[in-house]
Design a binder for these strands. Structure first.
Lengths: 327, 327
DNA sequence: TTGAAAGCGCTAACAG
DNA sequence: CTGTTAGCGCTTTCAA
């Protein structure tokens, strides 16, 4: 690997000049040319590690998510990546697997590797951001809010819960169950609150007990909860799924029981990019995951550049795509 | 940020001793204790950048994939990550977006950041690995084979094409189309070859012209091709999808046309983790993506540790999950 | 505009 | 077992 010294020697200049050429500070045209020539001849690539050590920061941002296999998060990652790479930053994707310890490890690595910022969808409400914040690095929370005073981008979760439920109500369903993620994740709690409000407003006398399930935000969570609901003495006639994967699990179980969607109403909070369902069978509250990633990345980049305004939280609107009316 | 000098001073030892404590070389028990104490007091985290610069290698491996939104690749990433983090390595996920230029950028970063190895599913047959190989870094190819003499892990692609097709033949279909990825990607070509062999063996007089489509390995590719096939004067009565996303697209279009699967036979090469189809409607050739990631990571780690045996290629067997027989 | 020189924080000889 | 010391390759004052 050629170093800046090799290039300097070949170009007949000082190492400092080579550095300047690669960092865009003023150097005479001839020397620029000479340096570029020499660099090309030696196929020189600046050593980022050395630069990082010297500068105490690197053009890398960490994106920490709880489930890399969830298309919702990969779609978000796409958004982050597009903005970041546009700005010359690379993105390190870290999968916390919804475990606080794994997450802590990645946070430690982010510090030790001098990464310049973090975008994080926390694993848990117990995620500790103290040490990372103590280093002064900007952190943007996505998808889930935190108790810290930092920038955030979230979905309109309560509204999502409400519109999903209302949609089902308008379609004529009544006993509408809700399957959400872990209760202590605010995203899940908010969506559940939206469901409860919509339902009790429409049917004040409906007994909600047994109709609400908290599960993992995964396909198996949706499956388990749906099986339970179906086993109820008085099963629901519709269900709101708290996220995309729960929706998939619930629909799978319904299908297996011969209850293909409009028969039991289904509304899913989150898109189902890879379903093969007829698009009109299920109500989908689209969550703009890519947009969330884009927004978070932009905010982070501004902070990295030194923006000092008070912490902001952006709430992203969602869009309901109704199922066709029940026949 | 505390440095080893701060820790050394507080612990009353030399910086070298601190370094030794954190790298597991022999230090007397008392000093180890003193150092650990001091480190804890200062909440010291070793600076990885400095270590990397000094050691000329870091415990980071790059995983370069063409589509981060494809569950096949994220499942693989999971496998890589599990093995890597077990061994104390972190994984940087790089999305080449099937573009050779983006891929080249990431490869350059991998060098410049001293990453110790690369696992890559190449974007294209024109991917150039020369410079990365010139640095002596181990590279493992996954999913797609390359022209380089390096380790690889691939699926039994031709066999996958054959069994998918045979399965459909056994179910009584005859005009079986094939929708695959770009012809110049060997994965796609091999699967197509398997389809062709199976079909011409069973029906030597069948005219295959028009029945074969090369598209992008994405949902829209599957959709477009399926629409074309359906518009044929003599449309196929079944279709083999060359990967999971193409399968999703094809099934979507069929559903929209009222031709739900067993009506038109469908076999998909690759799993459909998020479909809501009744599992018995479609034949799935399961590709062990996670296992591919695990295998690749293990091979890479061995190479990093200095394994010098000749390049190996591992071919992973797949497992067919048949649709129920046509009624 | 350019060069000399001093580190960034760590590791690895080399002595002791 | 432990300390001293010389860099890894780069950036960035400070002078010229």
């Amino acid at each position: 690997m050629a170093t800046i010294y090799d290039v300097a020697e070949l170009a007949g200049v000082s190492p400092a000049t080579v550095s300047r050429v690669f960092n865009g500070t003023s150097v005479s045209d001839e020397k620029v040319a000479a340096v570029r020539d020499a660099a090309a001849k030696l196929s020189f690539t600046p050593n980022r590690t050395a630069r990082t050590l010297r500068r105490q920061s690197s053009e890398v941002i960490a994106l920490v998510i709880p489930d890399i296999e969830n298309p919702y998060f990969t779609e978000m990652a796409r958004g982050v990546e597009d903005v970041a790479s546009e700005a010359g930053y690379s993105v390190v994707l870290c999968n916390s697997d919804a475990q606080v310890e794994k997450e802590a490890t990645y946070l430690r690595i982010a510090i030790a590797e001098h990464m310049s910022g973090i975008i994080i969808a926390t694993a848990d409400e117990s995620t500790n951001l103290d040490s990372i914040l103590a280093t002064g690095r900007p952190v943007v929370a996505v998808d889930r809010s935190t108790t810290y005073d930092i920038d955030g981008v979230v979905m309109a979760n309560r509204a999502a819960g409400t519109s999903a439920t209302k949609n089902l109500i308008d379609a004529g369903y009544r006993r509408i169950a809700y399957i959400g993620g872990p209760e202590h994740i605010d995203t899940a709690a908010e969506r559940a609150a939206g469901w409860r409000t919509a339902l009790t407003t429409a049917y004040p006398d409906l007994d909600l007990s047994g109709l609400q399930r908290f599960e993992t935000f995964r396909v198996d969570g949706g499956r388990a909860a749906m099986e339970e609901l179906l086993a109820l003495p008085e099963p629901p006639d519709a269900v709101v799924a708290g996220n995309n994967l729960i929706g998939v699990g619930a629909i799978q179980v319904l299908t297996e029981h011969g209850l293909t969607p409009p028969e039991v109403g289904v509304a899913v909070i989150g898109s189902l990019p890879f379903t093969t369902l007829s698009p009109s069978a299920v109500t989908v509250v689209r969550l703009p995951a890519r947009h969330m990633g884009v927004t978070a990345a932009r905010m982070l980049l501004e902070r990295i550049k030194g923006d000092k305004q008070p912490a902001r939280t952006v709430v992203l609107r969602n869009e309901v795509q109704s199922a066709s009316p029940r026949v």
